[in-house]
Nucleic acid binder design. Sequence first.
DNA 1: CCGGTCTAGATTGTATACAATTTTACGGTG
DNA 2: CACCGTAAAATTGTATACAATCTAGACCGG
Lengths: 222, 222
Amino acid sequence: MALNLARGLEPRSEGLVDALREAILTGRYAPGTRLVQEELAEAFGMSRIPLREALRRLEGEGLVVITPNRGAIVRPLAPKDIVDLYELRLALESLALRRAAERFADLRAATKQRHAQARQAIAARNLTALFRLDRDFHADIAAASDNAHLVAALGAQWSQIMRVMHAYFQAGDYPVDTWDDHEAIADAVAHGEAELAVERMSAHLTGSRDRILATLRESAAR
Amino acid sequence: MALNLARGLEPRSEGLVDALREAILTGRYAPGTRLVQEELAEAFGMSRIPLREALRRLEGEGLVVITPNRGAIVRPLAPKDIVDLYELRLALESLALRRAAERFADLRAATKQRHAQARQAIAARNLTALFRLDRDFHADIAAASDNAHLVAALGAQWSQIMRVMHAYFQAGDYPVDTWDDHEAIADAVAHGEAELAVERMSAHLTGSRDRILATLRESAAR
DNA sequence: CCGGTCTAGATTGTATACAATTTTACGGTG
DNA sequence: CACCGTAAAATTGTATACAATCTAGACCGG
């Protein structure tokens, strides 16, 4: 009975959903990629039954599109999707910021720490770490809203955006001033200045969105 | 060549997801209800394989909670969930209204027509029809926003609220002034007065939310 | 009576096998 | 060469069977 703890005790499909989601979010399965059941089942070392269940789960999350009798693909994302997603996201983040500012949530220390870690990650060209640090900031704000459904909605939105970024970004593309923006937003929240925080978030997201759109156009042109 | 529109030709799990979702949304399976696979498979006339896939799909949509080796239940909803959902919903509806007002979307005729149909439904004590008419108004606004992701987010939110209402409402509980509110909102949108529309929506939703919370408390007390 | 085993039944998890459908490859025809 | 039918291969859909796990109740010692 060696390492049965990691996998042996829980159903196969449990870890599988996370593994598949991770692979889709990190772009290992890029938008539009066909997900052939037997290949995946082989790759993850199980039969097609739990695999199919995992695909249905991800279909429900909006990460996968399943067409009857024709199989599953990673949900494609058009430029219009990016625009729509960011529009939606600003509304969600604004709500989160207002709720966080109401209770004077103080994320300044954590944000500052992430800023330092980000410098290291940039030096090391560690794109994955940068994404994670970025996500953590926004997740902290969402959590500070104390609204589980808002957290879920923001999480779903982040997943979609993340897929494009991982698919088309290089380490150099990551905007340097991200972390300054974050600190400015955390400051406003800590002082209870919700509308200032929202304004800063709006600028932050617009910049981020336009950079993604530009990168997407570049990739399409090549 | 041949049109494969026929229902009989598509996989069993397709119609199944819709049937199960419908049953959950209409409260036939109320929040907290255990969903035993063999029972359901029997009821829908198929084996557990497609049924399990449907449950996973609904899990991804947030309507069902699956615990490993212990089965699925209809996701429970606490009063706090209602509050959070309405807070989220107002943010989403506001965004939709602003986008709809930008393009002076004119929903007045459709809204007026639904008002008339609602009168009949009230007279006939047809609660299901009332819910559908209510949903159609909000779905129209969402559609007018021309943002597919916003539509999806609003749809998910509506599903959650709908479950509580179906579970605890009687026909008499449905607020009469709903349809006047809708017409007032449609008027503001048609005139491009976004902020007025938002203000009216806010009042509309607050009233709706408080009525649900009151009904919920009543049910709990009994 | 209380709290703790322990076993039988109920229920979930998944591999296998096969049916249904789509895709691909191919040879004939104009 | 393009255009079809058509059969083979690939792929998806699902029923069955069995293993793994949980649940409920009987039983027992305290």
